Amino acid sequence: MTIDSHQHFWKYEPVKHSWIDDDMANIRKDFMPLDLKLIYNQNNIDGCVAIQSDQTLEETNFLIDLAAKNDFIKGIVGWVDFRGNDIDTVLEHYSQFDKVKGFRHIVQGEADPNFLLRPDFLKGISKLEKNNFTYDILVFPHQLGAVLEFVKQFPNIKFVIDHIAKPYIKDGFYEGWAVLMTEIAKQQNVYCKLSGMITEADYKTWTYEALLPYMRLVLNVFGVERILFGSDWPVCLVAGNYEKVKKITTDFIAKLSLEEQRAIMGLNAVEFYNL
């Protein structure tokens, strides 16, 4: 079974999706399950995990509705306000939906590099364990110091780092990112998605070879048991297409055993998200 652990749906709205800048103009439109189903049929993908891209409860409910109507959406990662006083009630509400697997906050967009360590945020995150929810970590490399402190506080919560923490591939920066990713990977409850790499490289001139050092580091420190394939569709379309994105990962893991390849391409996602 091949599972895409990271993709998005949206009905495009200029204000809501203002993060889609002029360089990404080709994704300023709707992306819905019917579009993705066709791509999955062409690329032998069995199912996916849909990830929030807007920080509202309406977004979470939108994904729940799509998942209820489309069986290939095996799970969703929504958004809730972890700093809210009603976090217990909100998580209790979402625990009734089988396809709600976890949550995410767009931490990369927060000006405070230590946002994850704010007391009110930590208090909210601590509530995930009770409902067996996961948490997706979306950060830039300069926020990885906070990530290390963050994950150490919750050994019983399953975390996954989105897009290998968005290293500055376009600029060739590697060392600082690599040091912190190595330390974070020592926490056995932290996984990592091989996703979102071509959009951290140069959109037009990226090469497979430029991505290799980053993928090798992730494989070395997380191991085959804690890596998940993800496409980051439709964001990936600004720098390539679905087939190219999938091929990056399948080419990279081609020398591993078939069992290890199956783990990275789907079984690890099934296990992590309890699909």
Rank of each mutant, 00 (worst) to 15 (best):
G47C: 11
G47W: 13
G47H: 12
G47V: 10
V49F: 09
V49K: 08
A50H: 00
I51R: 01
Q52Y: 00
S53Q: 02
D54V: 15
D54T: 14
Q55H: 05
L57F: 13
L57I: 15
L57A: 07
E58S: 14
E58I: 04
E59S: 12
E59N: 10
E59M: 12
E59Y: 07
N61A: 12
F62E: 13
F62K: 12
L63M: 08
L63N: 02
L63Q: 03
I64V: 14
I64F: 07
L66F: 14
A67I: 09
A67N: 10
A68I: 06
A68K: 15
N70C: 13
D71H: 14
F72G: 06
I73S: 13
K74W: 10
K74A: 13
K74N: 13
G75M: 12
V77G: 06
V77D: 04
V77Y: 04
G78L: 01
G78F: 00
G78T: 02
V80Q: 08
D81M: 11
F82L: 11
N85S: 15
N85H: 11
N85T: 13
N85A: 15
D86N: 15
D86Q: 13
D86E: 15
D86R: 09
I87C: 02
D88R: 10
V90Q: 09
L91M: 07
E92G: 01
E92A: 02
E92Q: 03
H93L: 01
Y94G: 03
S95W: 01
S95N: 10
Q96K: 05
F97V: 02
F97G: 00
D98C: 00
D98S: 13
D98W: 00
V100G: 03
V100A: 03
K101T: 03
K101G: 04
G102V: 06
G102L: 07
G102C: 09
F103M: 03
R104L: 08
H105L: 03
H105R: 09
H105A: 07
H105F: 04
H105I: 06
H105M: 05
H105D: 06
I106R: 06
I106T: 12
V107I: 15
V107F: 08
Q108L: 10
Q108R: 08
E110M: 15
E110D: 13
A111P: 00
D112P: 04
D112S: 14
D112M: 10
D112Y: 10
P113Y: 11
N114Y: 11
N114R: 10
F115Q: 05
F115E: 09
L116F: 08
L117F: 08
L117G: 07
R118T: 07
P119Q: 11
D120M: 05
D120N: 09
F121R: 04
F121P: 00
L122F: 05
K123Q: 14
G124S: 05
G124P: 04
I125H: 08
I125S: 09
I125T: 06
I125E: 07
I125M: 12
I125K: 07
S126G: 07
S126R: 09
K127G: 05
K127D: 02
L128D: 08
L128G: 11
E129G: 05
E129H: 12
K130R: 14
K130L: 13
K130T: 14
K130E: 13
K130F: 12
N131H: 15
N132T: 07
N132R: 14
